[in-house]
């Protein structure tokens, strides 16, 4: 019996909660999920971006942000990100 919840239904249940987004590259975001579309473009609020720079790990605070779904690899619902694991 196949599971009867679709992947994006799970993400839909995360709207309003914190979510951790891991990109295909070494770049990650956390934020409160406000919404998304069929391409999994995501609107996040109170965002922190984590990236690796030549100077080491760097995090940047962002306001409301539309994240292009194209480069998204993994979504972790309810997580406050790399510091949480």
């Amino acid at each position: 019996m196949a599971s009867q919840i679709l992947p994006l239904e799970l993400i839909d249940k995360c709207i309003g909660s914190r979510i951790w987004v891991v990109m295909k590259t070494e770049r990650e975001f956390t934020g409160t999920l406000l919404g998304f579309d069929d391409f999994v473009n995501m609107v996040l609020e109170d965002v922190t971006e984590y990236e690796i720079t030549p100077e080491g790990r760097k995090s940047t605070k962002l306001g409301q942000t539309l994240l292009n779904g194209n480069n998204i690899c993994i979504l972790v619902p309810g997580s406050s990100g790399p510091e949480d694991v």
Partner: peptide, 24 residues
């Protein structure tokens, strides 16, 4: 514009709100 247009919080809705604003 992708998705059912303009649901609050959706990408479309966000974009409507930021046109004319300062962005990065």
């Amino acid at each position: 514009p992708s998705g059912p247009s303009g649901a609050p919080g959706s990408p479309t809705d966000f974009l409507k709100g930021v046109v004319g604003k300062k962005v990065v």
